[in-house]
C-alpha cells in the first residue's frame, strides 16, 4: 500500500474528480487487492492490476448511482423547468462537479464521459500502451483508440478555447 497507494489514489482522484469518492474508491480497491491477491498473475504489472480493479469498481459505482437515481425519480415526475433537455438525475451531479473542480485538468476531465476519462488518464498521464489500456479496461484496442480520439478531440477544443481566452 505504501508503494502503490499514491499512484492508486491519484488515479482514483482523476477518475472521480473529488477527494471523498477517491478515498472510498482507493479503500475499496485495496481491500479487493488484499482479498484477491491470489488471482494476480506473477510477471505482470501489479500497478496495472490495481488500475483494472479501480476501473471496474468505478464503473460499478457509476452504474449503482445511475440505478439509484433512476429509482428515485420516476419518468412521469420529470421536471418541466429544465425544458426536457437534461434529466434531473444528471443535473445535481453536474452541478456538484462544476462546484468542486477548480483546477484546469479536473475541469477538462469532468467534461469527458467516464470511459473517455479513463482512456485519457491511462494513455496520456500514465503513459500506458493501447494494449495495456485494453487489458486494464477489458475492451478491444479499437475501442481504446476510438475513445481516445473522441476524448482528445474534445480536449483539443477545450485547450484551444482556454488559450483563446488567455489572449
Amino acid at each position: 500500500m505504501t508503494q502503490y497507494g499514491k499512484a492508486t489514489y491519484n488515479f482514483a482522484f482523476r477518475l472521480t474528480g473529488n477527494e471523498a469518492d477517491a478515498r472510498d474508491l482507493t479503500q475499496d480497491a485495496f481491500i479487493r487487492v488484499y482479498r484477491a491477491w491470489r488471482s494476480f498473475v506473477p510477471g505482470t504489472s501489479f500497478l496495472s492490476w490495481i488500475y483494472r480493479i479501480v476501473t471496474n469498481l468505478h464503473r460499478d459505482e457509476l452504474r449503482r448511482r445511475k440505478g439509484r437515481y433512476q429509482e428515485e425519480l420516476p419518468e412521469d415526475n420529470a421536471p418541466q423547468e429544465f425544458g426536457g433537455q437534461r434529466p434531473l438525475a444528471v443535473t445535481p451531479i453536474d452541478d456538484y462537479v462544476e462546484r468542486q473542480v477548480g483546477e484546469p485538468l479536473s475541469k477538462a476531465l469532468a467534461q469527458l464521459s467516464p470511459d473517455q476519462r479513463q482512456v485519457v488518464i491511462l494513455a496520456d498521464i500514465e503513459e500506458y500502451s493501447y494494449q495495456e489500456i485494453a487489458d486494464i479496461m477489458g475492451c478491444s484496442i479499437g475501442t481504446v483508440r476510438s475513445r481516445l480520439h473522441r476524448a482528445r478531440a474534445l480536449l483539443r477544443r477545450l485547450v484551444e478555447r482556454a488559450q483563446h481566452q488567455e489572449r
Binding site: E103, L105, S106, I125, L155, R156
Partner: peptide
Amino acid sequence: GVTDFLRAGA
C-alpha cells in the same frame, strides 16, 4: 499541446 496540458495538470 493537449498532451502537455494533461501532464502538466496531473
